[in-house]
Design a protein around this nucleic acid. Structure first.
Length: 873
RNA sequence: GCGGGCGUGGCGAAAUGGUAGACGCGACGGACUCAAAAUCCGUUUCUGGCGACAGAGUGUCGGUUCGAGCCCGACCGCCCGCACCA
């Protein structure tokens, strides 16, 4: 052994190295791409959902942007020209809340947050083209959005309609669903009411059939997202049926319902209308009790979840309708579970074959008549108890439908209704038009002028953009744009008389419905440059949270169609590939008095029984360790990425967030996990620096190796193949595991440093270790490579992806599992080319296998090459 | 309530219908050290057995198959969305 004490192993100084490599990437412009790529370029557009600038990045962002960066760096190495931009979803409620609570202007608050978060993101070492950055609250962005709105209007895709909003009668403000808590306004505590307002809508329903059908072509989208969108669009075939009122109400003689079960029309026991339905209003006008019930329904707010979860209640309006076929009369109820927005706002109730109708009928003592007989049931005795029968069967108790199957009965009813002129077969969609009006300041102004004489007119092109005024007063409730002293007063562009600007601004979902197109030409004066969007769109890989599975993605799919219709771009689908990541979670902690504690306030120990204990740091106060749940400010179970990066470096944070879980699943952030990832970064550095004296110069080929060197070379090339496959399939946690195994193999090879050809094999292994981990730990990869090859020209970020040598992937022998009746009894090692007969003979010779036979004859032999042998006895 | 998803050791997990638990965390044991940290080596699904080995085991119950974590059905639990949070 060497008598001289070895120099202590050098440590990777991430704090110095990470900014150095970030500066180097920027200096060489490695991540910048042109608006219009060269003709021979293989473009690849990687995009993560852009962040709302809340103030600080959170772990969800770290996860999202790390995932995207791995894809971007990998695809770049595979020879693609990769566009990977970043921007800010910068309009929205929190900025107005900050303005009201702290007196800061929303714009000032937002841009300060952006500056902070941009610096935090830069410390992560993401391979972003920052020259494309914009915020949706930039006039340069929302001004172009106003042009899109007017183009859509011209193309017949914008409509003005009435709709209901949550109204806080004390604050005099429209509330977001999030601001309604248990039916009360979050600030005032007043009971929320529904209020009808005239608002702007984008006609997404015109594209409902296309949005549904085109889902079939999105082969790189998760099935569950497509299924959710499909259900949301909600195509259903059914019938509209008009019922005559026994007595006309306010001159109205009929009420129309939509049903998907026209076959059960003879099982009807009541008709129910929504509280917003004209018949409900008519009942309320003449009956104080009905008025009270309708008022109560209004207090439920507009959220569908709240409406459907509320106890099912109804009120008999006193009106009666006649059955279209037999003329029998049925009561008209006002029901809190009937949605005005769906179908016609009225249903007929058939309790025997619809669970909700059955619950309602039982509650109010309405009749229950079964009309669908389950197969094999006896018509004389079949009865419905507490469970409605919703499956197929044979129709009975139904006049001309008796004996028909359900589908035939549906057709027969529709034919008869159409013959009588009292109904039609229709396709109904659950999807509603997209209401984009918001009565708020911090959003894109809707470019419309209202004139008493000329109506609603577009703002003329030469008066665009309509810019938000800076001098706004948040001390008053309501929309600051509306009570601004001068902003809304303009001349009518048509007649010149005094007119008013639209004071509503756009839903922020509008901003995020075309930002991916804007990134292609972020400075363009038209909203997008055709050459740029035609070249770059669609986004090849889009990555974001599953919580956006429906709304954001559906609105974006609509927007590209609308932009296509108005000549702005060529594609219909914005995102060719979609990946939805899981959430980042952490344990939550509660102090003795029930207050939530931040993780850094808590100290851990071990109790006598081995369980974990926790106390408030520096005290003896007991802490309750709560559930592992999504990080949230209110539960204080957050970890600040900035602090983690400062303590361990960006590579460690990135590595840990990729290492432990499959990216689509929720992950738990643990301090010990991060520490483990940090140790691994140091281990890689040590492997390289320890090996350095034993390595031949850079560029030495590994050559035909034998013995230990060949074993290492096989490990190297198997790792190349395995990591490549894992990255291609988004199995980043598996890629990490393979690199761990590879590091173990390199570590084991240290003991055989003297073996023939080992120096070159180790050099190859370490260089590949750096290059394979580069998408995940880009700074360390550069650092390792500069250690191994100080004279090199290109950065790892510019190197092509390594290729595995097929000759080194082949195994000389394979291990087969030997089963008897499916139970493992032995394993055998056979040569790769062994014949089936040899394999069976070898397997049957195993002592354990013979014992398992227990003297019984073998009836069947199964051989799955490379895997398993199974004997059936 | 409706729609969608998930469930595997002490923990995070891996596994084209073919050896369940790779890899990591933690724990335990050992080496090094005056000591500690760091590092390195080993053990670690449960039960029985000194051991060879045997039995059980992927939320629960049932089914298909030579063979099921994986496919099918029912149930339980948790998570996401429900149109003005982003």
């Amino acid at each position: 052994m060497n008598e001289i004490a070895p120099t202590p192993p050098a440590r990777h100084d991430f704090a110095a190295a990470e900014p150095r490599w970030q500066a180097e990437w920027e200096k060489r412009g490695v991540f910048a791409v042109p608006d219009v790529p060269p003709a021979d370029a293989r473009k690849y557009y990687v995009l993560e959902m852009f962040p709302y600038p809340s103030g600080k990045i959170h772990m969800g962002h770290v996860r999202n942007y790390t995932l995207g960066d791995v894809v971007a760096r990998y695809k770049r190495a595979r020879g693609h020209l990769v566009m990977h931009p970043m921007g800010w979803d910068a309009f929205g409620l929190p900025a107005e809340n900050a303005a009201r609570e702290r007196g800061i202007h929303p714009g000032q608050w937002t841009y300060a947050n952006i500056a902070n978060m941009r610096a935090e993101l830069k410390r992560m070492g993401l391979s972003l083209d920052w020259s494309r950055e914009f915020a949706t609250c930039d006039v340069a962005y929302y001004g172009q959005q106003q042009k899109l709105f007017l183009d859509f209007w011209k193309a017949g895709l914008v409509e003005r309609k009435e709709s209901w909003v949550n109204w806080d009668p004390v604050d005099g403000t429209v509330l977001a669903n999030e601001q309604v808590i248990d039916g009360r306004g979050w600030r005032s505590g007043a009971l929320v009411e529904k209020k009808k307002l005239s608002q702007w809508f984008l006609s997404i329903t015109k594209y409902a059939p296309d949005l549904l059908e085109a889902l079939g072509g999105l082969d790189r989208w998760p099935e569950r997202v497509k299924l959710m969108q499909s259900n949301w669009i909600g195509r259903s075939e059914g019938a509209r049926v008009r019922f005559k009122l026994a007595q006309p109400v306010d001159g109205t003689e009929e009420v129309e319902v939509f049903t998907t079960r026209p076959d059960t029309l003879f099982g009807m026991s009541f008709l129910a209308v929504a509280a917003e339905h004209p018949l409900a209003a008519a009942a309320a006008a003449s009956n104080p009790a009905a008025a009270e019930f309708v008022a109560e329904c209004r207090r439920m707010g507009t959220s569908e979840a709240a409406i459907e979860q509320a106890e099912k209640r109804g009120f008999d309006s006193g009106f009666r309708v006649k059955h279209p076929f037999n003329g029998r009369e049925y009561p008209v109820w006002i029901a809190n579970f009937v949605l005005m927005e769906y179908g016609t706002g009225a249903i007929f109730g058939c309790p025997a074959h619809d669970q909700r109708d059955l619950d309602f009928a039982r509650k109010y003592g309405l009749s229950v008549t079964p009309v669908v007989l389950p197969p094999g049931a006896d018509p004389a005795s079949f009865a419905v108890g507490d469970v409605a029968y919703t499956d197929d069967g044979t129709i009975y108790n139904s006049d001309f439908l008796d004996g028909l199957a359900v589908p035939a009965a549906k057709r027969a009813v529709i034919d008869r209704l159409e013959g009588l002129g009292t109904g039609t077969g229709v396709v109904n969609w659950r999807l509603r038009d997209w209401g984009v009006s918001r009565q708020r300041y911090w959003g894109c102004p809707i470019p419309v002028i209202h004139c008493d004489d000329c109506g609603a007119l577009p703002v003329p092109q030469d008066q665009l953009p309509v810019v938000l005024p800076d001098d706004v007063d948040f001390s008053k409730p309501g929309n600051p744009l509306d009570h601004h002293p001068s902003w809304k007063h303009v001349a009518c562009p048509s007649c010149g008389k005094p007119a008013r600007r639209e004071t509503d601004t756009c839903d922020t979902f509008v901003d995020s419905s075309w930002y991916f197109a804007r990134f292609c030409s972020p400075q363009a004066e038209p909203p997008v440059t055709r050459e740029a969007v035609d070249a770059w769109l669609p986004v090849d890989q889009y990555i974001g949270g599953i919580e956006h599975a429906i709304l954001h993605l559906l609105y974006s799919r609509f927007f590209t169609r609308a932009m296509q219709a108005t000549g702005h771009l060529a594609v219909a689908e914005p995102f060719a590939g979609l990946f939805t990541q899981g959430m980042v979670q952490h344990e939550s902690y509660k102090g003795a008095d029930g207050r939530w504690l931040y993780p850094e306030e808590v100290e851990f120990g071990t109790a006598a029984d081995g369980s974990r204990t926790a106390t408030v740091k520096g005290t003896n106060e007991a802490v309750t360790i709560g559930r592992i749940e999504a990080m949230s400010k209110s539960k204080r179970n957050t970890i600040d990425p900035g602090a983690i990066i400062a303590k361990y470096g960006a590579d460690t944070a990135r590595w840990f967030i990729l290492a432990d879980n499959p990216p689509e699943r929720d992950m738990e952030w643990t301090e010990s996990g991060v520490a483990g990832a940090f140790r691994f970064t140091q281990r890689l550095f040590r492997l390289a620096s320890n090996a350095l004296p034993a390595l031949p110069p850079a560029g030495t080929p590994a050559g035909e190796a034998t013995g230990a060197a060949r074993k290492l070379r096989q490990a190297t090339h198997r790792t190349i193949a395995a990591v490549t496959e894992a990255l291609e399939s988004f199995a980043f946690n598996v890629a990490v595991a393979r690199i761990h195994e590879f590091a173990n193999a390199i570590g084991e090879a240290e003991a055989q440093a003297a073996a023939e050809g080992m120096g070159a094999a180790r050099r190859e292994a370490l260089e590949m270790l750096a290059r394979l981990s580069a998408p995940m730990m880009p700074h360390l990869a550069e650092e390792l490579f500069s250690l191994l090859d100080p004279g090199r020209e290109s950065l790892v970020a510019q190197m092509p992806w390594p290729e595995a040598d097929p000759a080194l992937l082949k195994a000389e022998t394979v291990t087969l599992a030997v089963q008897v009746l499916g139970k493992l009894r032995a394993t055998i090692e056979v040569a790769a080319g062994a014949s089936e007969a040899e394999i069976f003979a070898l397997a049957e010779a195993e002592e354990n296998v013979q014992r398992a036979f227990a003297g019984k004859p073998v009836r069947k032999r199964i051989h799955v090459p490379g895997r398993v042998v199974n004997f059936v006895v």
